[in-house]
């Protein structure tokens, strides 16, 4: 393997990243806004105590939230302490890491509309399915 091949390969990968810098910068700046303006208290206030409704709210609010996963555990733990259903909390912490409304424009620009739509739709449906399956299995185990 020649050194020039490696240099050319690295040049290509740096160039690929550089071309996406405006999009990446935009997404990172957007995550800052979401983190500050959409507070954990605001998210907690969306839940009502009705399991099905809360599971949907958990999925949607987890999907629009951004930040480190431990923040979703903190909020999820708080919700459980307030007698919220495990279905809602599981949906919330799972959609936090699998759905990303903020990064949709970036995903769309790179992968195209069809891929982005199918992937996110499937991720949304599977958040609901996995939440249901997890809680049911947990109840069986208990």
């Amino acid at each position: 393997m020649q050194l020039s091949t490696f240099i050319l390969a690295f040049y290509k990968s740096v160039k690929g990243f550089a071309l996406n810098l405006p999009m990446l910068t935009g997404i990172i700046l957007l995550t800052g806004l979401f983190e500050v303006f959409i507070t954990p208290e605001m998210l907690s206030s969306l839940f009502s105590g009705r399991p099905f409704y809360d599971t949907l709210i958990g999925t949607i609010s987890g999907g629009i939230s951004v930040g480190q996963p431990f923040v979703s555990y903190l909020i999820g733990g708080e919700l459980l302490d307030n007698d919220m259903s495990y279905y809602a909390v599981t949906a919330f912490i799972l959609s936090w890491v699998t759905l990303g409304i903020v990064q949709l424009p970036y995903e769309y620009s790179l992968f195209g509309g069809r891929f982005t739509l199918i992937r996110n739709l499937l991720a949304f449906i599977f958040v609901l399915l996995i939440s249901f399956a997890t809680v049911q299995t947990l109840q069986l185990q208990a």
């Binding site: 071309l19 405006p22 999009m23 935009g26 997404i27 806004l33």
Partner: peptide, 20 residues
Amino acid sequence: KAKLSGRYLLLLVALSYALL
């Protein structure tokens, strides 16, 4: 031809920051 992606998004986010 490869081109810069996300210029408009970055501009929109910058404007949001300025407004906020």
